[in-house]
Design a protein around this nucleic acid. Structure first.
Lengths: 205, 205
DNA sequence: GTCTATATGGCGATAGAC
DNA sequence: GTCTATCGCCATATAGAC
């Protein structure tokens, strides 16, 4: 199977993903995106009228992918630990390539909550249902939760924060890129047990 | 005791803090800072030659506050669990009052990585020593850590992320302000045990 | 020290030829 | 669809009166 030459639109989107990811919305330069895509600035505006549209395209695509996958993992079958393994494996990798996303979700909820909420429901993401599913999961495994929300916050914190805070950690501890990559691989392996065990202890019955 | 009229420099710094914390370096506008301080743009440049200098002043201060709150507690005496209790009690409260700070620091490191490394050494920040202290602590308690960095990342993630992501959590689960406040109080109580237990299991010797 | 007015440069966006 | 050239704005920064 021959790989078709990527269309200009695809080239733009790929470039935009890369530049927005590195610099954020404000820091990204249309000129940079054009250069990375190997075209000129004017063409960007021909395809996506302005910077905001281009960002929204990239943002929506990423959000949809993430939300869909996460939902599938937790709503499906299997023990909680199995699900956590699959979740961290997917989510940490995904975040490494989209580390600006959490910030834009959080910030977007301040500025345009409806748009984001709409996007989430359109992609069939219902955090309350995911949480309910996790609680059911635990019940089947003989663990009763007092405050499920805490568990949900813990699960997300442990994957999102260390990836978003990558520059902070690597600066603080003078870590190379390879160090950081190993660090994230370690996390994927350790976090599921860490969570399950921490929780078991808190509900010792 | 009479409160002296704040000097112009203090007014500028207060305003700069507010604007930079919310918008980061790239997003902040000198005009905004001037307006907030109740002066005009030219005066900003009179006091701090340029935007970069002003930013550095604010950033150094923020970094010091953040690192200070963390290291003071962990560098002192006591068992790890005691320290964790004190840490979360203090840190989560601190973050609730300074919820922009973590984003500001992380974002600052994205925007100007080189400059910040220089700032850190100049101001004698050594997070690696804090971590070494935690590891010593654990050794005294008979717990050997394979990858201390993981633990450090976990400790910080669990306090910082849920505060920064407050709008996300409250949107997802339709929580009131009172709900959220209770949520954070719960965390202060639960997190120390959660961490200690999760960790013990991972190092079962 | 504090102001008004202005210079300077960069970036998003558009016009228009091909 | 793709390019070159250029506009117009806005943000930082400076000049210079008071």
């Amino acid at each position: 199977m021959v790989k078709k030459d990527p269309s200009t639109e695809e080239k733009i989107l790929t470039a935009a993903r890369e530049v927005f990811h590195k610099r954020g919305f404000g820091g990204a330069r249309m000129q940079d995106i054009a250069d990375t895509a190997g075209i000129n600035k004017a063409l960007l505006h021909y395809y996506f009228r302005n910077k905001e549209n281009l960002f929204n395209a990239v943002f929506t695509e990423a959000l949809a992918a993430m939300v869909g996958t996460v939902s599938n993992i937790f709503m499906g079958q299997g023990s909680l630990e199995e699900k956590l393994v699959r979740f961290y494996d997917y989510h940490i990798t995904f975040l490494q390539q989209n580390s600006y996303l959490p910030w834009f979700i959080i910030n977007g909820l301040y500025e345009k909550p409806d748009q984001i909420r709409e996007l989430m429901t359109r992609n069939n993401f219902h955090p309350d249902k995911v949480l309910a599913r996790i609680v059911d999961n635990l019940k089947e495994e003989g663990i009763e939760m007092e405050v499920p929300l805490q568990m949900f916050a813990n699960i997300l914190s442990l994957s999102i924060f260390p990836v978003v805070a990558r520059p902070m950690l690597s600066h603080f501890f003078s870590l190379t890129d390879e160090d950081m990559d190993r660090f994230y691989e370690e996390r994927k392996k350790n976090l599921p047990r860490f969570i399950i065990n921490g929780m078991k202890f808190q509900n010792p019955k």
